[in-house]
Amino acid sequence: MSKPKVGFYWCASCGGCEEAVVDLAEDVLKVVEAVDIAFWPVALDFKRADVAAMADGEMAVCFVNGAVRTSEQEEMARLMRLKSQLIIAFGSCSHMGGIPGLANMTDCETLLRRVYQEVPSVANPDCILPQERCEVPQGSLTLPALHDTVSSLDQMIPVDYYLPGCPPPVKLIKDAVSAILQGAMPPKGSVLAPDVAMCTGCPRKDSKPEKLLVSAFKRPHEIQIDPAKCLLEQGLLCMGPVTRSGCDAACVEGNMPCTGCLGPTGRVRDFGAKALSAVASIADATEESKIAGVLDKIVDPVGTFYRYSLPTSILHKRNRHEGNGAH
């Protein structure tokens, strides 16, 4: 019997997810032994044409990381969907939109103006912006179109499973791969990680008081972080209570607060709203004037609460239209 064909693809991502595959270390050899890698542009020399030439559903599973924000990424995502029996959204960007998804706070025009003109380190006196098509003596050059809105993978194509994390923890990847190989997959649409919040296995859990009230939120660089005490108790915005477990509290073990990359539990529809609600619950202020004082300490609320999930949130993107109630 031939080995199942597997593909990897990346859309709008930093490349960390690819690293995560390599992080499997010697275990990657077992994977290679068990499967036939049919497509992995980062590591192996396959082209789009090779995939296009495959029969529909020829690949058993395809891991796609990164958000979708260009016409090329959209096209490739649709192609992978066609050629693969299973699509696994791999990593936060693919799962929820991720860091690139924060671009939904702005639009293409503003974004390009900022990057190509306004940034102090840019010298662009002719105000040249990237074009989808550019005529040069040698002929026409083309670039993919940039979407005005960044999407998670499942906003573009149907997704079968999600491997969460920025990047997905090695243990979750190994568990997912062995589940696929054994055909022991949970119901379609599942996130392949435990459905309990991170606090459950947090090494600092016992140090958290039953009645926690925070009067001043802090950023990690502002304090000497006590390595034994609950980070929320120290005023740091640890997203552990809101975030799915599965990373063995890696950031907390590194004495840094959880930023929520594994996303919410299966019971929460909007990570940022839930995080905000949880933080509001522990803010030590009941009068309106004082509430503002406590919450003003949170720099960049969207980047804090929706760091990985703006495109899949109920907000989806910033309302950039004029007037009240327009959408």
């Binding site: 459905d195 309990v196 919040a197 606090c199 459950t200 926690l212 552990g240 619950s281």
Partner: peptide, 26 residues
Amino acid sequence: EELCSGCKTCIPMCPYSAISFVADKK
């Protein structure tokens, strides 16, 4: 119960003191 992470956020929220932390189950 099996889904609770034991983060204790809810405990002080209850106006009726109906929520407690079960120490052995965390």
